[in-house]
Amino acid sequence: MKLIGLTCLLLISAWAQNVGPLEQAPAKFANKKNPMQGNESASRAGAKLYARECAACHGSEGEGGEKAPPLKRAEVFQAPPGTLFWVLENGSLNRGMPSFAHLPEPQRWQIITYLQSQKPADHATGK
């Protein structure tokens, strides 16, 4: 019985490692609204914060890096803002992304505003 329990635990853990951070966000976060959505000034501030906090791994244009996925893609563009907020707050340690909870909440929303103001690259190419 203990062996079955342990096997289940290992399988769940392996599954959790394969699930992307956007899928790991609890459903209640999807309803969280971005108070700065569509705000041009917030988007420009977000671009500045993105360059400082995110560009080193995700690329200066969100094209992705050696280990970090691209952010200029439909999945991010269409994601509920609250889900992105959850990912920024918690990071995804098993994928190498640290938590950005040290950034004040409004700055995290500014980054999300910027990310969702960018046209996804995979939209243009029809991927």
Partner: peptide, 17 residues
């Protein structure tokens, strides 16, 4: 605590955040 919680849109050194 940062002196401002919201970042300014322009690149600046002496801004409260």
């Amino acid at each position: 605590r940062p002196l401002a919680l919201t970042a300014r849109a322009d690149r600046c050194n002496v801004c409260p955040e």
